[in-house]
Design a protein around this nucleic acid. Structure first.
Lengths: 112, 112
DNA sequence: TCCATATTTCTATATTTGTCGAATCATTGG
DNA sequence: CCAATGATTCGACAAATATAGAAATATGGA
């Protein structure tokens, strides 16, 4: 992951509503959350939510799929891992989180 | 570390020059780097560099001390750890970097 | 004290970002 | 095909951010 991409990811997360949305998506796991649900939960008008989700998508942090009338967003754990990797490698003093430590795609979890 | 603070930290890093500066500061370790040196290395006018360093300082990611005529900036590893901690806990799927994994303050290193 | 160096603050300006209603597009059910 | 639902795009505007020269503020040396 290169600096340019990292900056987009950081910018994407550096905003109240987007950080909150991303957190919800991470909690939701693979199944994801519909745009409208996010808008409602975060108390943000649909058009604004759409704007923010587009930014997250542009940064590669989320993916989306249509499901009937809804568009379901889900967190992209690989991208998040990439970001974390960059930060630990470049913005921490050398070592830290080991190779195998990573953002896991909520594998067998079903709680949230 | 709470969301509000996290957002300021992310915003601080979400900028080309600031990310680059922070990386240099992390590499430099405890001894830090003078504002002017950063400005020169990044090819940014002093006033602009000052602006960016103020943002990093405001986000708590760097500290500064005067040393003769220079003002030396250094990365605050504790703050960076806090940020990483928040991200792993809230933006990754549950577990990942274990408790002991962290951004170390370049302990006995002297290379850079 | 006077000058040079190192930085910051001030000021103005250009650019980017966030907001949100209205209009538009896609999908489903009747 | 038409209406209803869920979401995005458009457009206008407000607010925050980035840039950088000029002026102001420390510090150290002659």
């Amino acid at each position: 992951m290169q600096a340019d991409h990292v900056i987009r990811a950081l910018s994407a997360l550096a905003q109240e509503h987007r950080l909150a949305a991303f957190r919800l998506l991470v909690q939701a796991g693979e199944q994801g959350v519909a745009a409208g649900v996010l808008a409602e939960k975060l108390d943000v008008p649909p058009s604004s939510m759409s704007f923010h989700l587009a930014q997250l998508a542009n940064a590669g942090l989320v993916t989306h799929r249509r499901e009937s009338r809804s568009i379901i967003y889900s967190a992209d754990y690989t991208a998040m891992n990439g970001l974390m990797g960059y930060l630990t490698e470049n913005c921490c003093a050398g070592m830290s989180c080991s190779e195998d430590a990573a953002c896991l795609p909520s594998p067998e979890r079903k709680t949230a």
